[in-house]
């Protein structure tokens, strides 16, 4: 059983959704990012998404762009990202890398998969790689036992969802809204319908991301999804903190709030 299947299985057994937290490696520094991701895990994040900083993040809104810009200025490289992922995986959390495609292609598709697996990473999310372009990636990830996560969106047709889900392993990433990453005050109504359509196509867990920032939103999504993904809200906490210690406390606090959120469904069912 892979680390991801394990994490989703444990959450299911506990009658709750899994909590997935994203931060870019190297933000605000190499060591700082490892400490923040460990704080996430201590606060209750089940699965960590380690962002690979890229110069042209066209699916990301201003908050992640700013964080990634800081990480690049700090000199974070794809090799460094794999190291960071290894350090985070050492804390026991299932650890994925989220990366735009070009840095992986440049690193060497097989070499990237091999190194990440050796470091202890369990999979990769690729927001701009479509199944049509992923033949080499499928071979490399299978060879090294990594899960391969693609995205579906509210605009995806049912046929398309089936096609994408068939190429996924670990879980399917459902983008809740048509738009870029960033906290939103309300999670789109489109998310629930999308999750239902994904469930019709696959038995894999479905996790919802884009726009989730509070325990309340996490609880809403946990009603119908297997996983809740939070990124920009963590980054905002870090950007607003005066120093790394405050950032660690803030990140841990937000993780606890979100972890309580994904458990609220069960509380309600029991009451």
């Amino acid at each position: 059983m892979t680390a991801l299947a394990d994490a989703f299985g444990r959450a299911r057994d506990e009658g709750r959704a899994a909590l997935i937290g994203y931060l870019p490696a190297g933000f605000p520094s190499r060591e700082g990012s490892v400490r923040l991701m460990r704080a996430m895990v201590e606060g209750g994040v089940d699965i960590v998404e380690v962002g690979l900083p890229y110069s042209d993040p066209l699916m990301d809104g201003p908050v992640i762009q700013e964080a990634v810009g800081i990480a690049l200025a700090e000199g974070m490289t794809p090799a460094g990202v794999i190291d960071v992922a290894g350090d985070v995986a050492g804390s026991g959390a299932a650890t994925l890398v989220m990366s735009y495609w070009n840095p992986i292609e440049r690193f060497g598709v097989d070499r990237f998969a091999e190194r990440l697996a050796a470091a202890g990473g369990c999979g990769v999310i690729t927001p701009d790689l479509t199944p049509e372009e992923s033949a080499d990636w499928a071979i490399a990830t299978a060879a090294h036992g990594l899960d391969r996560v693609f995205l579906v969106a509210p605009s995806s047709t049912d046929a398309r969802i089936g096609q994408v889900a068939a190429e996924c392993s670990g879980f399917v990433y459902a983008a809740s809204t048509m738009g870029v990453t960033g906290a939103r005050s309300a999670v789109s109504d489109a998310a629930e319908g999308l999750v239902a359509r994904v469930r019709a196509a696959t038995d894999l867990p479905v996790a919802v991301g884009l726009g989730v920032s509070s325990g309340e939103q996490a609880a809403q999504i946990a009603e119908y999804a297997d996983g809740v993904i939070v990124g920009s809200a963590f980054i905002r906490v870090v950007l607003e903190s005066p120093d790394l210690e405050a950032a660690e406390q803030g990140v841990g606090g937000l993780a606890r709030e979100l972890a309580a959120g994904v458990r609220r469904r069960r509380d309600r069912a029991l009451s």
Binding site: M59, D128, T130, E132, S155, S156, R160, V164, A175, M178
Partner: peptide, 20 residues
């Protein structure tokens, strides 16, 4: 098909744009 010119071209975009 797929907008390829040999190994070049293709479509590397967020899934949200596929339908459009």
């Amino acid at each position: 098909p797929g907008g390829h010119y040999g190994q070049y071209g293709g479509r590397f975009v967020p899934e949200a744009l596929t339908a459009a």
